[in-house]
C-alpha cells in the first residue's frame, strides 16, 4: 500500500472542469477525499456522478483542473504502472470469456512476479473475501448481478490497493444483498484501511456507510453540498439537498 500523504488527504481535486466534447457538465470542482474514509458522490440522475468517477480513475481527460491521488497528479495517466487504486464498475465489467478466478488473477499476472499457483491462491482468497468461494470456475454470465458486482470488487482488490472506486455498487440489488455489500465495504474500510469513493443515490446505503460526501447538481453544474451525509440530511438549509435526502419530489 502507498503511504497516505501527511495531511491525510488521499485525493485532492482542484478547479476540475469535466464534460464531453469540450462542453462542461461540471465546473470548477474543488474537494478532498480523506484517507480511510468512505466518500460518497451523490446527486440526481444525469448530474455527472459517473463521469466524475471516470475522471478520477483516469478513464477520461478533464477539460481543466487537476486531480492528485496520494500526492501524485493523474494527468496524463502514467504508462506501464499498476494503478494505485481499484475500480468496480456499475455493470461489473468482468471479462466475459474468463472465469471469475481468471478475472481476479489477470492484474496479478500482469503486475506481480508471483508463480501461477500463488496467483491462483491469492485470487481465490479475494473471491472468498467477497463471498464467492466455490464460484471461481464460473463464467460471469453464469452468476447473478449481485455476484458479478462482488466479483468486480474482488478484482478491484486484487493488487491490494488502499483506494477503491465503486460506481453504483448496490444499484439493482435486492435489499439483503445490498446490505451485505455495504457490510463488505465497511469491513474493507475498517479492517484493511481502504479508502472508498463510491457513486450512488441509494439513500440507505449513503447513511449506513458514508462518512463524507459531495452532492452534485445538474443545473448548478457543480457541488451544492458537502459534509457528513447524516448531518446534511438534518442540517442543510438548501431546498435541493433537503428534497434529495428526504425523498421529496420537486415542488414539495
Amino acid at each position: 500500500m502507498q503511504p497516505a500523504p501527511q495531511d491525510g488527504v488521499k485525493i485532492r481535486v482542484r478547479g476540475l472542469t469535466i464534460g464531453y466534447g469540450g462542453v462542461p457538465i461540471l465546473r470548477d470542482l474543488d474537494f478532498d477525499v480523506h484517507s480511510r474514509g468512505i466518500f460518497v458522490i451523490l446527486g440526481g440522475s444525469g448530474c455527472g456522478k459517473s463521469t466524475l468517477l471516470r475522471h478520477l480513475t483516469g478513464l477520461q481527460t478533464p477539460i481543466a483542473g487537476s486531480i492528485e491521488i496520494a500526492g501524485v497528479t493523474r494527468f496524463p495517466p502514467p504508462v506501464d504502472e499498476p494503478p494505485p487504486f481499484g475500480v468496480s464498475f456499475q455493470t461489473g465489467a468482468l471479462f466475459g470469456s474468463r472465469t471469475l478466478l481468471e478475472n481476479v488473477a489477470l492484474p496479478l499476472q500482469k503486475w506481480t512476479g508471483l508463480p501461477a499457483p500463488d496467483i491462483d491462491n491469492v485470487a481465490f482468497a479475494r473471491l472468498r473475501l467477497v463471498g464467492l468461494g466455490g464460484f471461481e470456475n464460473h463464467l460471469p454470465a453464469e452468476i447473478s448481478g449481485g455476484m458479478r458486482k462482488r466479483a468486480s470488487i474482488a478484482r478491484a482488490l486484487a493488487l491490494e490497493p488502499d483506494l477503491l472506486f465503486l460506481d453504483e455498487p448496490s444499484a439493482g440489488l435486492d435489499p439483503i444483498t445490498s446490505v451485505e455489500l455495504d457490510d463488505l465495504l465497511t469491513t474493507l474500510n475498517r479492517s484493511l484501511g481502504v479508502t472508498i469513493v463510491l457513486v450512488t443515490h441509494e439513500l440507505e446505503s449513503i447513511f449506513r456507510i458514508g462518512t463524507d460526501c459531495i452532492m452534485l447538481d445538474r443545473d448548478a453544474l457543480g457541488i451544492i453540498a458537502r459534509g457528513d451525509p447524516r448531518e446534511l440530511r438534518t442540517d442543510s438549509s438548501d431546498p435541493r439537498v433537503h428534497r434529495f435526502f428526504n425523498r421529496l419530489p420537486a415542488g414539495a
Binding site: 478513464l59 499498476p82 475500480v87 464498475f89 468482468l94 489477470l106 492484474p107 478484482r155 493488487l159
Partner: peptide, 9 residues
C-alpha cells in the same frame, strides 16, 4: 475501461 483501470493498455 476495466482493462485500462487495471493499468493495462
Amino acid at each position: 475501461d476495466a482493462l485500462r483501470s487495471l493499468g493495462l493498455d
